[in-house]
Every structure is written in C-alpha cells, then in structure tokens.
Nucleic acid binder design. Structure first.
Lengths: 340, 340
DNA sequence: TTGGAAAATGTTTGCGCTCACATTATCGCG
DNA sequence: CGCGATAATGTGAGCGCAAACATTTTCCAA
C-alpha cells in the first residue's frame, strides 16, 4: 500500500483516540452510536473528531464489520422519466438509513446475461441488497440462487411478493378503462408497453377484465415497447381501424406518439378518439391535447422499494406501508364519443 | 466481526491459493493483471477461482491498496432527461475502466450546503473522483479546497476548463439563432434556462452576440428554469407581445410549455411563431408541431466527463477527445415568417 | 458498608487483501 | 558450463476498523 508520510495520511481513529484521551474502541463506539458511553466521553470524542478532521474509513469499517451499507441498483439504460424518479426515491431512503447507492446500467432489451453481469458487478462491489428497476419477471429464473444470497427486489410487484407496498397496476388499468367506458365509449383499445415488464401485462389483463365485466369483447392488443416511436407505430395501426373511439395507452411517452399518428391520419384527439395514458410525466400536461393520465407516485415507489430491501438486509420485519394509490388525472385528451 | 463458521464464509484468496497450489500473492497478481506471471500459473489460478467461486473482496482490496476505484456522481433531483442520459454515459465508461459509480441526489435549487453535504457523503464513501451533474459555477467557491483533495468535474464546461471535451454551448445558441434569422425572421426572442446553470448563460450570451452581429438589438430575455411550467409562463409572456415571430427556447421541455401557451393565445407554431429549442429529447419529434431543436450528445458528454475524472484520478495526461458537436435538427416548429 | 450487577472503557485479535522485500527458478551468453 | 540478469514466486507485515473478551468503574440494595 502507499506508505505515505505522516503528514499526508488521513487521520484515523488512533489520532482521534489520542486527542480525546480514550481508546480507539471508545471512538468506534461513539461513532457507531453504540450505547453505554458516557455523554461526557462522547462529547470529548466528537470534539477530537472535529479537531483532527477525522472521517470514518468506509472500506476499513466494512472489512472489519462485514457490513458495507451499500445498496445496488440496476437500471435499464433508457432515459425514462419513471426510472430516474424511482431512483430518486431509493436514494433518499438510502441516505436516511445511512446506505450508499451504487448503480449499474443495462441496455434496454438486453439478454438476461447482461442483468446477471450487472448483478454480479454490484455484488462484487459489496452491495448488500439489490434493487432492479427493470422487469424482474423474466429474470427470476436466471437470477436463480443469487437472490437467496443477496436480497433483491423489483421496483413494482415482484411476482406477487409484497404487492401492497407498490402501485397497484390493476387499479391503474381499471381507472383508465372505466374512465373511457363511463364517458360512453362502446369499447376501449389498448396499446401495451414492453411485454417483458410485468406492469405491462398486469395492465393488459385488467383492461381485458374490465371490458368483459361490462360485457364487451376486448379488441386485439396493439403491442408497443414504451418508446414514443413504438407509440407512433401503434397509432398508425389504430388510425387504420375505422371505428376506434377510445384508446388506453400504457405510458404517456407512447401516448405522444399515438396522438401524433392519429392527427396525421386526420383523427383528432379527443373529438374523434379519446386517449388515456399512464404515468403523468412532467410533459403530460403540455401535450396537445393535455393528457388525461393515471398518475403513479414514482418517488414513493422508490422509497417503498428501498425500505423493503433494507428491511430484508437487516432482517427486520416488514413495516406495513401505505398502499400507493394511482390517481386518474383528467385533462383534455378524453371526451365522450362523437364529440358529443 | 461475524466470526462465521467455515461453510458460510465466502471463499478468499487463501482458498484459491490452496487449490491452485500457489501463494496468495500470486493469486493477487493474477487477479490484478500484474505482469511477470507465467501463463500456465495464471491459468491454474483462474481455474481455481472458478472452482471455489471466488470473488475479490472490494473492501479488503481497497483497504490494502488505498484505492477504491469508485466514482461519485452528484445529481440534481429532477427527472430531467439530460441528467439520466449523461449518467448513462458516465456509467458505461466507469464500467469499462473498472470503476464503481455511486450517486447522491440533491434537490433542485438547493443551497450550496446541500451540495457540500452530498460531496462529503461521496468522499466519505471513498469516491476517488466526483462528477457534478449540476451547475458548478456557483459552487466553485463553496467547494473550495475540496476539489484539490478529490478530482472534481462538472458535466459541461467547468468554468473554462476543458471545454474541448464537452458540447460547445455557444455553437448551440449560434445554430439555433442563425437558423431563425436565416429563415427571414427580423429578430429572435429567447427563453433562458435556470440562471444558475452556465450553459443557460452561455447560450444567452451567444444568442445576443449573433443578433448584434446581424445588426439587431436583442430583445429582453424571458427568464425560465428548465421546467415545462416555466416554459408555459414564458410562453404567456411572449404571447402578450404582438410582433414576436421567432423564439429560441433553451430546452425542449420548456418549448412544450411555450408552444402550449402560444396556441392557447391563438398564435400557431410555426405559422405565427417559430420555435427552436435545445436537447432533442425522445419526445421532441412527437411534439405538436415536431420540434426543431439542437441535439446534444448527452451520452457522449457523460462518457467524456467520466474519462476526464478518471484521467485526473490516475494522473494520466488528458487524452484529446473529439469535440462534441451539437447538431441542428430541423423539424416542423420553424418556418419563414408570416407563414410565407 | 459492602457485594454484586451493570455500565463504561480498555486490550487483543483478525477481517482479506496488497505492498515491499526476499527468495528461488529460468534464461542468455561468453 | 557457469554466472549474472531477469523473470517468477514466496514471506511478512500492516492498512483502519469493529468483534469478542477482559478489566475497571459506578451504582444501588441489603
């Protein structure tokens, strides 16, 4: 190691202990908030810490304790609004709980192998828990025994585990579909998100269920992949179908594409076709027309997710979380059929 | 530390060394790509690594070597497209160079104190270099001596240092402004971004310069803060001014707001008013009308930035980087004046 | 008072690794 | 064939900290 001269060496607990007139162990105890330290001693130590400019050496602490206090996050590398918003929530909880967050990006639509590589990289860096902001479903089997070794959670419903902490995707689809039916539309078409994401499938299923409940046979799904481009293509498909009056699009970004395609085909929104989407990104209110959409509390999703991993790491029992409610935000992209 | 029983202990270099029939030092040398190891020995070691399922213990390596191979990134916590795209670039370079990336988010418009706190947190976690994806200008003095201890770079031009690796903000403003003037507009109005960001000011200055070069006195700047909402407010201001025919908006997201406000006021884009913006986010092509915008290669910005910090950390001399060129993408939001 | 428990603090050890230096194997060349 | 140089490998120590255990101090009840 770099046997550096004394003057450029960072101060360590020995330095603090010397100044405070205690043992290094006492310094360690004070710093880690251990009980059984006299307040007066603690003060002396803290003063010494300030005096010498000491800061805990994370690597050493982690080597000695076997704890890294580090969370890993696997992101899909699209600049999707939702992902960054969720990450923000994860980070805020991590900071509160004294965890560091390290990220690993993975290309969109990567093979499971890339996810495993990212997973291993984060594990290798010492992550004690891993949050995957990507579809976990199709990874479950690839991940295999890894998730036993390292607590791992997906960002939304992870295959039926812990749904309660996260946004109810079925409620989203129900709110959107019922809104359109309640306006008087005979049926509702659906542009789905990437098929690998569970929420995409959950929404599709619930959209179908709602239609059947109302005695309507669901039209075929128009598949897309979350991107605005895919939404545009879906929109062209829809524009080619004569009697469509209402579409439930699985994300705001796709809705921009859908609306563009409809307008190019001479179908106006909402006069000819109503469009509801999901997310309520910042630009949703500034689309033309402003998007009626089902808002997801992304930051809260991130917070809830991070709390859950930390609970798993520390083997604390899960704290019941408020269920996160999606919220229908009605703007200008929906109206009763026939411009009526 | 948790004196765990042998069976649940993770394999270490001693285990590998035993299986490979070499010393731990040789294992270490093989793993860190040291020269002077016989290929055959290296193979034996790698085979043993696989056999026992060994993975380097990052904390121990870092304690012994004094290196953490960790980069810190400070993000402003808005889900801005550009930020996540840059982060992606940073990460890809980090992964290539064997660095981990840890992030710390800071609220938008925070006091410098929050940045310092984030900086200290990252430093405390062992970051060897720090990337600030936020306006560095107003932080320079607050950061003070910290940047001597830990290499720090901003994401774009860091006060005149190393401009060449990053996007030329003046070229952006010039391309946008000249595009409008060349279309025949008599003058160009400007909606600026958050005043704390240097690129915002750089663009404003260059916009002014271009106008003066063409003998036009710049109209007053309409201030905004990057958000679509602020763009909308700016748009209302502009709509109240009778003879505006061309606007240079400092970001796509604000342009959505500006266009919305103009349309609400009965001014159509581009027939009555042309709008150019900056970024070319994924939704830019799906605005109504599709945005003419100056594209910034965000991922490359992130890559260049990361390369620069790593060069600073490893005291390698700076590798000359291709200058990153912004690119004017002409779509439908600009046209010659008077609908002509 | 004093004994005994609990609180407060100290001592020793080792986490897993890499550094510096020591030693041994290998090679080229006169 | 032998000797010095270089390549290849080994040995010992210590990075900074927290766990386990040892010791001292404090406090209160009998």
């Amino acid at each position: 190691m770099p046997r550096r001269s004394a003057e450029e060496r960072a101060p360590n607990q020995v330095d603090v202990a010397r100044v405070a007139g205690v043992s290094t162990q006492t310094v360690s105890r004070v710093l880690s908030g251990h009980p059984n330290v006299r307040p007066e001693t603690a003060h002396r130590v803290m003063a010494a810490v300030d005096a010498v400019g000491y800061r805990l050496h994370a690597a050493a602490a982690s080597l000695a304790s076997g704890r890294t206090r580090m969370l890993g996050v696997i992101l899909v590398s699209t600049a999707r609004y939702s992902t960054s918003a969720i990450l923000l929530g994860v980070e805020s909880v991590a900071a509160e709980e004294g965890y560091a967050v390290t990220t690993a990006s993975v290309a969109q639509h990567s093979a499971p192998a890339s996810f495993l590589e990212a997973f291993d990289r984060l594990e290798g860096q010492g992550a004690e828990g891993i949050v995957i902001l990507a579809p976990v479903g199709f990874l479950a089997e690839a991940l295999g025994s890894r998730t036993e070794r390292t607590p791992t959670v997906g960002h939304r419903q992870a295959d039926g585990v812990g749904d309660d902490a996260l946004v109810d995707q079925r409620a989203i689809a129900r709110a959107a579909t019922e809104h359109l039916l309640d306006l008087g539309h005979r049926t509702v078409w659906h542009v789905s998100g990437d098929e690998f994401w569970q929420e995409s499938n959950a929404r599709r299923e619930e959209w179908e269920r709602v239609l059947r409940e109302r005695g309507v046979t669901p039209p075929p799904v128009i598949p897309a992949d979350w991107s605005p481009e895919s939404g545009y293509r879906a929109g062209r498909t829809i524009a080619a179908i004569p009697d469509v009056t209402a579409v439930f699009v699985s994300s705001d970004e796709m809705a921009f594409g859908v609306i563009r395609a409809l307008h190019e085909a001479g179908r106006t929104v909402p006069d000819d076709v109503s469009v509801v989407s999901v997310d309520d990104i910042a630009l949703a209110a500034y689309a033309a027309p402003a998007l009626t959409t089902v808002r997801q509390p992304f930051e809260d999703v991130g917070r809830a997710t991070a709390k859950r991993v930390i609970e798993m790491i520390e083997k604390r029992e899960a704290v019941a979380t408020e269920p996160l409610r999606p919220e229908l935000v009605v703007r200008a992209s929906t109206a009763p059929p026939h411009g009526a």
